[in-house]
Each structure stands twice: as structure tokens, then as C-alpha cells.
Amino acid sequence: MNIPIKTQTSASSRVLAGKVALVTGSTSGIGLGIARALAASGADIVLNGLGVAGEIGRTREQIATEFGVKASYSPADMTRSTSIAEMIAATLAQSGRLDILVNNAGIQHVAPLDQFPVEKWDQILAINLSSAFHTTRLVLPAMRLNGFGRIINIASAHGLIGSPFKAAYVAAKHGIIGLTKVTALETAEEGITCNAVCPGYVYTPLVEAQIDGQAKAHGISRDQVVRDVLLAQQPNKRFATVEELGALAVFLSTDAAASITGAALPVDGGWTAH
């Protein structure tokens, strides 16, 4: 399944020109799609995440060349508060501002609760939840100084509902929504908004690998895997795309979304409408 990337780059779409955006976990998948959308709208981009150095360098150069923005990369470890602090400090030193923060970094592990590895619990909570606390607390002073800020937390449909065998992920994503609400309340009069985006299944290379793996494991077709396994709970029976999430992130970053704060916005094809 291939979903083409279509990005608007006209001058009229560069509503974020002059802004600086940091997207954690943005070397692939959802984070990269959001980073590209913000860059297409004129924002300078700070990428962060894992990957091969050469490939990350090419991604950074492609964003800078394609969209005519500054693009940099931080290898900050999202499990370490000191590493996160260094990333925020370096961004502010380099750009003098940080207008848009997208907390997207995340990992997953599936296991029964009584068999869930303690080290995996700790790692998931650190990356999926605590990292967003650290980035948020560190960017707020700069946002307050400028009288403008947009914090977008990538939660999940699992921030609104539960599923078996995903204790750490579900707990972290519920926590992200709580953190979103508190941040919104504390910054409501300061030109800063904070919202959570709650995707269902999104088509990414990782999901593509899951499709092939499940098809082989269960001896069923790819279409059956998509419809009856992965999208069993999504009424619209289609994946969301990284471009859809990118477009929502751009909107939430603009003045048009100034009154949207503290919200958990499902992008799940009706999953949480059940």
C-alpha cells in the first residue's frame, strides 16, 4: 500500500514563516510527516530521533532545500532529562526562539500486565510521557517571553480508550492528555495553546511491516489484515495519513486556532465514537 505525499509549498501557504518548530521523534513516520508539513508552511525545523546518521542528514537537507527553511537535527535521548535540556538550550541559542513544540516521540511494547517487563514500562513512560513534561517545562519561559506558543502532544486513540496488553502505552497516552489539559490551563492567558492529537492507525513504514508480518503469521491476505485486524475498530476502514496529521498540526499552530486549547482531538475514523 503506497500513499503519495502531497505538500503545498506556495507562498500563500507559508503561514508559519518566521516560526521555529521542534518535533521530537521526527526522523520517520508521523513525526517526519508533521515536520515536513510545518516546513512547507514556512517554519524552521529542528528534527530529533533515531536512525542512520547519513539518512538523517539527507532528510534534513531535503527539507531545507525543498521548503526553503532552516532545518537542523538534535540526537537528544528522550529518556534523559539532561539530554532534553541540552536540546532545548541549543535550539534557543541557535534560533533565539522556539514557537512550536510537537511532542511525538514514542515507543510501544505489547505484553500481558502480569508479564510486562519492568524495564519496558519504565522506558515507555520515560519516552512517551516524561519527555513531554521535560520539553514543555523547558520551552514555556521562551514562549511566555514572546507571547506566543503552540504545544502539540501526539497522544493516541489509546489516550481515550484502553486495549488489552498495552498497559504502559495506554497509561502514558492517558497521561499525555492530562498533561495537555494542565498545560492549557496554566497558559490560557499567555498566547500559548496546548492540544493533544489522538490518532488511530496511521499508515507508516512500521505499519506496512505489520501488515506483511500479520498476513504471513495468520495465513490471510493483506486486505484481510488491514480490514479485520488492524482497522477492526475504525469504522471508516482506512488508515489516517501522516499528511492529515501534518495538516492538523499546521492548523493548530496558526492564529486561526488561538481559541483551541486543552483539547484531545481524535483522528481515528470514528474509533472513539463507539
Rank of each mutant, 00 (worst) to 15 (best):
A40P: 12
T65S: 15
A111C: 08
V15T: 11
V118D: 08
M87V: 05
L92I: 15
L125P: 06
D114K: 03
V102C: 09
I88M: 08
S41C: 14
V20M: 06
I127Q: 09
A21N: 09
R97S: 09
A89Q: 13
G54A: 06
G68R: 14
I56F: 02
W121S: 06
A37P: 11
L32Y: 02
A93W: 06
Q62N: 11
K120R: 15
A71V: 04
T65W: 03
D99W: 08
K19L: 12
L113D: 09
P112Y: 05
L125G: 07
I84G: 00
A37R: 09
P117V: 05
L47M: 01
G33Y: 07
A64C: 14
A105N: 02
V110I: 15
V52I: 15
K19Q: 15
G49N: 11
I84K: 00
A90N: 12
A93T: 15
F67L: 11
D44G: 06
L101E: 01
A105R: 01
L22P: 02
S83D: 15
A76S: 12
T27I: 04
D114P: 00
T79E: 12
M78N: 14
V118L: 13
A37H: 10
Q94A: 14
V110K: 04
I107K: 13
I30K: 00
G29V: 12
G42F: 13
I84Q: 00
L47W: 00
L129H: 09
Q108A: 14
R80E: 09
S72G: 07
E86V: 07
H109L: 11
A85H: 08
N48V: 01
A105F: 03
G54C: 05
A89K: 15
A39M: 03
P75S: 02
I30D: 00
A21D: 13
A43E: 15
S74K: 00
D122R: 05
V118K: 07
I34Y: 01
D99L: 10
A64M: 13
N104W: 02
I34R: 00
I34Q: 01
H109G: 01
G96C: 11
F116C: 07
G31W: 08
V15Y: 11
I56P: 02
V46S: 03
I100K: 00
M78W: 05
F67R: 01
S28P: 06
A43H: 10
G57P: 04
A53Y: 10
L32D: 01
L16K: 06
I127M: 13
Q94C: 10
R14V: 13
A35I: 09
V46P: 01
E119D: 14
S81Y: 08
S83A: 14
G51L: 10
A85W: 07
G29M: 14
